[in-house]
Amino acid sequence: MRKYIVKRFIYMIVLLAIMSVFAFVVIQLPPGDYLTSYIASLQQQMGEVDESVVLNLRKQYGMDRPMWQQYFLWMRNMFQGNFGESFQWRQPVKTLIATRMPMTIVLSLITLLFAYAVAVPIGIYSARHQYSIGDYVASILGFVGLATPSFFLALILMYYSNRYLGLSVGGFYSPEFQNAPWSFARLWDLCKHLPIPVIVIGLASMANVIRILRATLLDELKRPYVVAARARGLKENKMIYRYPVRVALNPIISSIGSILPSIVSGATVTAIVLDIPTVGSLLYNALLSQDMYLAGACVIMLTAITIVGTFISDILLVVVDPRIRLQ
C-alpha cells in the first residue's frame, strides 16, 4: 500500500517535470513573442527604434539566450516563487494567479460535487430500470447535455434567470459586492451567482458519469455475486447499494482525474461568456496576447491540478478496491 503510493507520487513528480517542458515548448510555439509585438507598437509610436534598445529589452527578459537556457531560467525562477512578469497586465504573474486560483478551485470542486451528486443516483436508476421511460429520459437528457455547447447554455440560463428570477448574472459577485470585504451578505451573493456556472460547467461531466455508471452497473447487475447476495436474504435496495453499486463506482472514482481538468480548463468558454474570473479565462487572454510567462504559469497550474487529481483518484481507488491493493 505505502509502496504503491510512493510509486505513484514519484510518477507524479516525473510527469510534472515532463509537462513543464511541454508547457514551455507550447508557449514558445507561436511565431513571435510578446516583445516582437511590443517593439512593433513602439515603432508605431516613435518611428525608428534603436537596435540597442531592442537588444536591451531582449537581454532583460533573457530572450537572447538559447531555448534550453530560457527553460531552466524559467524553472529556477518558478521554484523561487517567481513566475515572471505579465507583459500585458504589468503585474507579477504570481499575483494574477493568486487572485484567481482559489475561486477557480472552489468553483471546480463545487461543480464536481454537484455533477456526482446528480449523476450517480440517475446512473443507478437508469441501470436498474433499463429501457424504462425514466431511463430513456435520463439518456436523452444526458446526450443533450453532452451535445449542447456550454456557452449557449450559459447564455440561455443567464437570460432566463435574469428575466424571470431577477438575479444579477455574470461574474462571481454583484457589482456592489465586487470589492467589499467578506461578510454573510457577500457570501450569499456569491451563492446566488454560483448555480449557473456550476450547472453549465457540470452538465457535460454529469452526462459522462451517467453513461459510465449506467454501463458498468448494468454489467455488474448480471454478475453471480449479485444473485448470491440476493439469495442470502438481503433487502433488494440495500443489496444493490452494498454490492454492485459499490463495484460500479470504481470507474467513476478513477474518472475524477480526467474530469477535473475538463472542469477546470474546459470551463474557459463558459467563464468568458459568464465573465467569471477563473484561471481558464486568464490563460485564454494570455495566449491571445502572447503573454508567455502568464500563459506558461497557467498551463503549469492546470497540468498540476490534473496530475494531482489523478494521483488523488488513484489513491481513492486503492482505498475502495481491495483487488488493486494486492499488486
Binding site: 453471480p224 455475486y225 444473485v227 448470491a228 439469495a231 436474504g233 459499490r246 463495484v247 481491495p322 483487488r323
Partner: peptide, 25 residues
C-alpha cells in the same frame, strides 16, 4: 421470501469465485 432465503433455504453456486463479491472480505 427474504426471511426464507439464506436462513431456511440456502443456495450455493456454480462459479464460486464470481459468486463472492470482490470488494468485501
Amino acid at each position: 421470501m427474504r426471511h426464507l432465503r439464506g436462513r431456511e433455504i440456502s443456495m450455493i453456486f456454480q462459479e464460486p469465485m464470481a459468486s463472492l463479491a470482490p470488494v468485501y472480505t
